[in-house]
């Protein structure tokens, strides 16, 4: 299965990544290489097996519904840019 440039750009787009024109060829080659490499699993004898969900098969780890306020919300906002009225200022988002 060979991957097209269009497909690579679509996947990059889904990943919110932008590839420069001069990068695309390199990325495409690497992408194709790892896909080819991964195709080894096509022949794996796994048809009758279940998928693994949680390697330790634990269940029901629930938290009690009790309020614990985080002590330092300023530290949370510290790494943001352009904080205004204690909110993150962004260009207008059309909803």
């Amino acid at each position: 299965m060979s991957v097209s440039e269009k497909e690579l750009v679509h996947i990059a787009d889904l990943s919110s990544l932008e590839l420069k024109k001069e990068e695309i060829q390199d990325y495409l080659e690497n992408f194709q290489e790892i896909i080819d490499f991964s195709n080894v699993i096509n022949n794996a004898p796994v048809e009758d097996l279940d998928i693994t969900i949680g390697i330790n098969e634990s269940k029901n780890r629930f938290r009690k519904d009790e309020v614990k306020e985080f002590e330092d919300t300023d530290a949370l906002l510290f790494n943001g840019q352009g904080i205004q009225q204690n909110m993150y200022k962004l260009p207008k988002v059309v909803q």
Binding site: D65, K68, E69, F70, L76, N86
Partner: peptide
């Protein structure tokens, strides 16, 4: 109408000052 959020212990009260009912 639980007291805390679904995945953390922050309170869910409506109308708090912006970004005060938050945690990591």
């Amino acid at each position: 109408s639980t007291k805390t959020k679904i995945f953390c212990s922050c309170k869910t009260t409506y109308g708090g000052a912006p970004n005060t009912q938050v945690c990591p």
